[in-house]
């Protein structure tokens, strides 16, 4: 049945730190690599070396500009993948039962053998976390690397999602949100972790840490005083030229 479980024993998910993400897209590549070489249908590409390349990705990094009322704009890199919602709309719309949310850890998965590729779950997801693979004809989505995190054939430090393992700036954290003392729960508490589109009522498990407010622009660097213009009014030859040109 594609009913959602009333509650899950654990709530596994990610914390994504928008303050430290540098937008390198390494998580995108490691995700594509792992999920193409391991469980499930590979993430195919269409016309990869041609004029109109496109392909299936489970994780994509957007970049946004935030312009406050005063002060300079801030650039925020924004990785986005499945948020493993507690109230996942993609699960209940599935006509075949292929989409489900696991009771034991809350991971939202697709049973590819049952998926008919109708695409309705992708329509139901507000985050664009599901993509229908054009080669396999089935829906692909983040599995939270379910084939890594429980995989005893891997060294222990590798038993985290590929995106988390690879992130060079430590902007991605994996853990259990049902445990208030877990690393991820503490991060959410300390840094004001937030939901995306809370008004959609999806209750996402993954949380985003907002970028820290920037210090005053002038104080942002010890070198800043040396970078300010030395002369506001031009003097000497340039001063004479300036005045002469004004008179013409």
């Amino acid at each position: 049945m594609t009913d959602l479980p009333k509650s899950t024993t654990r709530k596994l998910g990610l914390v994504i730190d928008l303050d430290t993400c540098v937008g390198c897209h390494a998580c995108v590549i490691s995700c594509k690599g792992w999920n193409t070489e391991n469980d499930g249908a590979p993430l195919s590409d269409q016309d990869p070396y041609g004029a109109d390349p496109s392909g299936t990705f489970l994780n994509r990094v957007h970049s946004y500009e935030v312009q406050p009322d005063t002060g300079p704009a801030q650039l925020v890199h924004f990785p986005k993948s499945c948020l493993h919602c507690e109230n996942a709309p993609c699960v209940t719309v599935c006509p075949t039962g292929a989409s489900y949310k696991r009771v034991e850890d809350g991971i939202v998965l697709v049973n590819e053998k049952d998926c008919i590729g109708c695409g309705l779950c992708a329509w139901a997801c507000p985050y664009g976390a599901r993509e229908l693979d054009a080669a396999a004809g089935v829906m692909k989505k983040c599995t939270l690397c379910v084939d890594r995190i429980y995989n005893e054939n891997l060294p222990e430090e590798d038993r985290t999602p590929a995106c988390v393992r690879t992130c060079p700036s430590n902007a991605r954290h994996f853990g259990d949100f049902s445990d208030p003392e877990s690393h991820v729960s503490q991060l959410v508490r300390d840094r004001g972790g937030m939901d995306l589109m809370p008004e959609q009522g999806t209750l996402p498990v993954n949380k985003y840490l907002p970028p820290r407010p920037k210090d005053d622009w002038a104080d942002s660097s010890v070198l800043a005083p040396f970078l300010t213009p030395v002369a506001d009014e031009p003097r000497g030859f340039l001063g004479w030229l300036d005045k002469a040109l004004d008179k013409i």
Partner: peptide
């Protein structure tokens, strides 16, 4: 934090 614009 301000007005958000899709940059890239």
């Amino acid at each position: 934090g301000g007005r958000v614009r899709a940059f890239e």
